[in-house]
Nucleic acid binder design. Sequence first.
DNA 1: ACCTTTCTTGAACTACTGGTCTAAAACGTG
DNA 2: CACGTTTTAGACCAGTAGTTCAAGAAAGGT
Lengths: 191, 191
Amino acid sequence: MGRPRTFDDDVVLSRAMEAFWTNGYGGTSPAQLAEATGIAKGSLYNAFASKRELFTKCLELYHRQVAELAKGLLEHPGTTRECIGAALRFVVDSDLAQPLRRGCLVGNTAVELAGHDADIAQKIRGMQDESTGWFEARIQRGQRDGDVSRDLDPRAYAEYLANTLAGLRVMAMTHEAPVLYRIIETTLSTF
Amino acid sequence: MGRPRTFDDDVVLSRAMEAFWTNGYGGTSPAQLAEATGIAKGSLYNAFASKRELFTKCLELYHRQVAELAKGLLEHPGTTRECIGAALRFVVDSDLAQPLRRGCLVGNTAVELAGHDADIAQKIRGMQDESTGWFEARIQRGQRDGDVSRDLDPRAYAEYLANTLAGLRVMAMTHEAPVLYRIIETTLSTF
DNA sequence: ACCTTTCTTGAACTACTGGTCTAAAACGTG
DNA sequence: CACGTTTTAGACCAGTAGTTCAAGAAAGGT
């Protein structure tokens, strides 16, 4: 029944995500999206209704990818401090390894759109809360394992780490590795 | 000699800054700038050459205003910890008091433009370094006053605080006061 | 009073925006 | 192998982007 898609939705989504990540929502035109994905504007709108909806899907894809990575990193063997340090350093390394500094799509979107768009703001908030949750879970495990003090409030400390991470990704837009590593060291020295 | 300006450059700059702060560089059109400043597009281009140059001037104005405020706050009476806490809380309170969440113009610009524009990136970097300098100076004073340990590396800790601040202003786009205050508390509890 | 200079303004300009539509082509199905 | 459905590439649209410009207006110098 009907002609099938000639493109893989996930591949298109992934390429569109790269474009949005590089240029922001407002900075990415339908023409650029067509160019980046390799399919025509018409097909893009047929498949994803609007630029807004395509962006939302890209944002969700980004978050899913981050989630997978983050969980992997935090479940690695090692102490809580080692794990969290490795995770933060990994993010910084990834940011710096790219030819263009792009920051974090979630953070960038918070800055670009959250103030004007309650819907997006809520989605972003949800993603940030989830990230905080990963840190929280790792800290709680640390308390069970005995390498994190029971006096530490896991939620508060997870929020603190999420904030540090948000900061790092802004700082990575303009700073080099030594400064960023030093910030991570100082952060880790606090527990 | 020649017809004099009918407008005050500083007033126009300040209004343009508000517009850029609210909508970002790319999100602010010449028409909006004309509307916001109250002078015609032509006059704007006559006085400021281009949107880019106008923006640069706005960015510098913003930084100068922040500098004045920051210095005032950090020179207040009280311990280092009290001073820095008050400064961070002040920023959060200001962010949340506004009708629209706008974050920090310097941070927002880092995210929006630093990756694509080396010139802007350098300017932003300079402003961030200056902010770090204020923290550093306050910590050094604290070490002289005796309320901060001599073991603490003032530069590293200042970078750490600048990073926390950068994070807070992104987090303030989507989070409410209690979370932000808790992050500040956790940060302050580390020295 | 004129000339020069600098300012102001609104219109004009080109290129491109986000988004829609259409005609043709491509398929799975019966 | 024709059917109806769906995809596709590109034309198309009104609107806006950032910028320039011609024409007039307000001042000082002569």
